[in-house]
């Protein structure tokens, strides 16, 4: 055994490595030369025990160098092979990336839930707390407490479903306002009352005997019509964009004084008038007003110390405005072809 043996071994190995085309070949070469028991390099040292000390050292050194050379050559060749494989990926592993994925099968959250969630979120950001109440109400909470006594001409608009003379399906969520005033007792009160309501109107494209409302109530010192207007404007702009305008128009409800309808500028024509707003430039959204002193009294609040404003609108109406839905019945007809659009 000599240096020349070692260098011959090195050049043989380097030649083999240089010709190798795959990782498999390199692996075999690695075992052939560097294998612990029967590799060529190990065998170089097989007789080392019988050699004199000086030769021992020289041979050990040569063998180590040979091993380092081969290892370095293997690593370099591996790097070369890797680089060329990665360079070819565009051809070797190409697939049709335009092929559509399988259906996700995700379920959808009802569009009315989504709208209700948005409304709650916006009003919660102003410090309003959600309050809920029963859907089957007493005559007192649904009507009397709101100045809608029997025989009142305005009762026409709140034609209701009855179970007995005193028990009915609530015609608005206003009873929750009364209940909340009674339970919270001490103003300031800032609440919203979302929920299902019922009116005895035959089903048609624009109205149903059942629908959903969000009403709001603020009771505090020195609240003004301007505060109410600002609150509605903040809500509408948060939901529909800051280019929207709000108009309040005098109207009449027995439970507020003064009373208003509130309109939102048409999103299609921007308020100049078009077919979808019936050339008015405005879309009717809901009613609002300053809470009637008697209604505050009915809720246990002293109207000489506190005043308030309230509003109400239909969630369906808001969804129709936002998503261009033209038939309210679609919301309550569980047709997946409709529900999956949102």
């Amino acid at each position: 055994m000599s240096d020349s043996d070692a260098s011959a071994l090195t050049s043989r190995a380097l030649a083999a490595i240089g010709q190798a085309q795959t990782e498999g070949e390199l692996g075999r070469i690695e075992v052939e030369y560097l294998g612990r028991k029967s590799g060529h390099v190990s065998r170089l040292l097989s007789n080392i025990g019988q050699l004199p000390a000086a030769e021992k050292a020289a041979l050990g050194k040569a063998a180590n160098e040979t091993k380092r050379f081969i290892e370095a050559a293997l690593a370099a060749r591996r790097a070369e092979l890797d680089a060329s494989r990665l360079a070819d990926l565009a051809e070797t592993e190409a697939i049709d990336v335009t092929f559509p994925g399988p259906p996700l099968g995700r379920g959808h959250i009802h569009v009315l839930t989504q709208i209700r969630r948005q409304i709650e979120t916006v009003l919660e950001s102003l410090g309003y707390q959600v309050e809920l109440g029963p859907e089957v109400e007493t005559e007192w909470y649904n009507f009397e407490a709101l100045n809608l006594t029997a025989g009142h001409p305005a009762r026409e608009s709140w034609d209701s479903f009855y179970f007995s003379p005193d028990l009915l399906l609530r015609a608005h969520t206003s009873p929750v306002q009364i209940r909340a005033m009674q339970s919270i007792k001490d103003p300031p009160i800032y609440i919203i009352t979302p929920g299902r309501v019922y009116r005895r109107d035959p089903p048609e494209a624009t109205r149903l005997p059942y629908f959903s409302q969000v009403e709001g109530l603020a009771v505090d010192n020195g609240l003004t019509v301007g505060d109410m207007k600002g609150t509605l404007l903040y809500m509408i702009q948060s939901l529909y964009g800051r280019e929207r305008k709000v108009r309040i128009r005098p109207s009449y409800f027995p439970f507020t004084e003064p009373s208003f309808e509130f309109d939102v500028s048409c999103g299609i024509c921007g308020g100049v008038g078009c077919k979808s707003c019936r050339h008015k430039g405005w879309l009717e959204v809901g009613g609002c007003g300053m809470v009637h002193p008697q209604v505050l009294r009915n809720g246990g609040i002293d109207p000489t110390q506190w005043n308030g404003y309230a509003w109400g609108f239909g969630i369906e109406r808001m969804a129709m405005l936002k998503h261009d839905v033209d038939d309210i019945r679609l919301f309550y007809e569980p047709d997946l072809r409709f529900l999956e659009q949102f």
Partner: peptide, 26 residues
């Protein structure tokens, strides 16, 4: 609010492929 807390339930159901419906109480 109760309804916002139930959004966690809606997420699970939506993930499992269930679509929410609103049906008349009458």
């Amino acid at each position: 609010s109760v309804d916002r807390r139930l959004d966690d339930v809606r997420e699970v159901l939506a993930g499992a492929g269930f679509t929410e419906t609103w049906n008349p109480a009458l």
